[in-house]
């Protein structure tokens, strides 16, 4: 059963098309991954789904309610977890949650119960009355999730909730998201971390240049990418012309130079590797390490977008 239906969504800022006809559906109870490089249009798409921005064209329907024509009912069903904690640092965790509960129409007589419940979900009961300015980055992220859950939304949209936090908090957040499925909460999860998406998501959409360029379950997407392999070649000094030289070789699908590494997507690693090796040596480079990866979401992403996930 479909909870969210996004159809032909478009949004431009001046002449720049941030979202260019994006369409996808999210089913009730699933964790849906939205992957894309920086500037792909993920955040704008999220803002359009939440009704923070108005679309130039297309529609967003949440649980049968159109964000465009019945925004209040649609918004009641959505919780948002922005990338950076959108909270008031001079207030306590509890005061923040009371505020966001009020803003999200939690009735006054149910507010304390809702606050205590979400504090328990994110494991911050014992720090509830401290000002959050004293919290670590990970604790603020957890509270940020609690604020998104305070009104018991049917759809929780999480925008890269684990960027830049310690492993312990990251694991806590991942387990929290995993447990949301048991509470019948549907999640849209954007991330740069393939392993998180692989661990959490039932289905994934890949976005680039404002469009959805692939959508499916993880096995379906990996099947699409199974004919491709990703090679990582570490080079001590990367020669200037290496990108063009390797791109011209047979079986080289995509080439990305990143730091001291070349990332290659190939349809035949065995044939590409010797000629790539020769090209690097021929241009004066020194190879220090070569890794051949099994087909995974990252290599599919690289192939589809020509960009690494952390670009």
């Amino acid at each position: 059963m479909i909870l969210l239906e996004v159809n032909g969504l478009k949004k431009a800022f001046g002449s720049r098309k941030a979202v260019n006809g994006a369409s996808f559906t999210v089913r009730r109870g699933e964790v849906f991954g939205l992957l894309g490089p920086n500037g792909a249009g993920k955040s704008t798409t999220i803002s359009l789904i939440c009704g923070v921005l108005k679309a130039n064209a297309g529609s967003v329907v949440v649980d049968g309610f159109s964000v465009g024509t019945d925004g209040a009912n649609a918004k009641k069903r959505i919780g948002i977890v922005p990338q950076e904690p959108a909270l008031y640092p001079t207030l306590s965790a509890r005061a923040n949650l009371r505020f966001w509960g009020t803003i999200n129409d939690v009735p006054a007589d149910e507010l304390e119960e809702a606050v205590n419940y979400v504090l328990q979900v994110v494991g911050l009961v014992d720090r509830a009355d401290e000002k959050i300015a004293k919290f670590s980055g990970g604790m603020k992220r957890r509270l940020n999730i609690a604020a998104g859950l305070i009104h018991s939304p049917k759809l929780l949209i999480m925008d890269e909730p684990t960027v830049g936090i310690d492993p312990q908090s990251r694991n806590h957040i991942l387990e929290t998201v995993k447990n949301l499925k048991d509470k019948d909460i549907t999640v849209i999860y954007t991330s740069h971390y393939v392993e998180e998406v692989e661990y959490l998501c039932d289905r994934v959409a890949v976005m680039d240049n404002g469009e959805i360029i692939a959508e499916g379950t993880l096995p379906e997407l990996l099947e699409q990418g199974s004919q491709f392999q990703e090679l990582t070649i570490s080079v001590d000094t990367i020669p200037d012309e290496i990108e063009n030289a390797i791109q011209a070789l047979p079986h080289a699908e995509e080439v990305i130079v990143q730091n001291e590494q070349l990332k290659l997507v190939t349809s035949n690693a065995e044939k590409l590797l010797p000629s790539a090796f020769a090209a690097i040596i021929g241009l004066g480079g020194t190879v220090s390490e070569i890794k051949i990866h099994k087909p995974n979401l990252e290599s599919l992403f690289l192939k589809l977008t020509g960009k690494a996930l952390r670009d």
């Binding site: 923070v52 959505i78 948002i80 922005p82 904690p85 959108a86 803003i103 999200n104």
Partner: peptide, 12 residues
């Protein structure tokens, strides 16, 4: 801080 957008994403 993003609290503005969070308010706009609610029914407020």
């Amino acid at each position: 801080t993003g609290t503005w957008q969070r308010m706009l994403a609610s029914t407020t």
